[in-house]
Design a binder for these strands. Structure first.
Length: 114
DNA sequence: ACCATGACGTTTC
DNA sequence: CGAAACGCCATGG
């Protein structure tokens, strides 16, 4: 474990994650591409794992894989906590699968570039 | 220094 | 169209 978690890359990931509008979700690949590490989507996931280290709370539940599947829900406290949080924001989730994913998908490369 | 794993994504069969 | 394999990059053992 590195001592300095404040790497620009990780920090950027957290920033983007917090910029996700309520009721919207994005994918690891989208964030990775936005940061310039298109082929490092896994690192985004790793950053989220490290997000627990951050003082600021990161809405990691709004970040899912490109399929809209809550693959990382197992990393949350409970088992259905992630789904609960998403549903609380109006997002419909069935069997760890986000419904209308294409509609609520939030692309930082477009939204933030505007 | 090498091998194994992972909150992913794209390409190939 | 669906499943499997490979690729990427970083962290851990």
């Amino acid at each position: 474990m590195k001592v300095k978690e404040s790497d620009n890359f990780f920090e950027k990931v957290y920033q983007v994650a917090r910029l996700i509008p309520l009721g919207r979700v994005t994918s690891y690949g989208a964030i990775a591409t936005f940061l310039g590490a298109a082929r490092s989507a896994r690192m985004v996931g790793w950053a989220m794992n490290n997000s627990h280290n951050q003082q600021e709370e990161v809405p990691a539940h709004r970040v899912v894989n490109r399929k809209g599947l809550l693959t990382g829900k197992h990393h949350f406290d409970g088992t259905n906590l992630m789904q609960q949080l998403l549903e609380n924001e109006g997002i419909v989730v069935v069997e760890n699968q986000i419904q209308n994913f294409d509609k609520i998908f939030w692309n930082p490369s477009e939204e933030l570039s505007k």
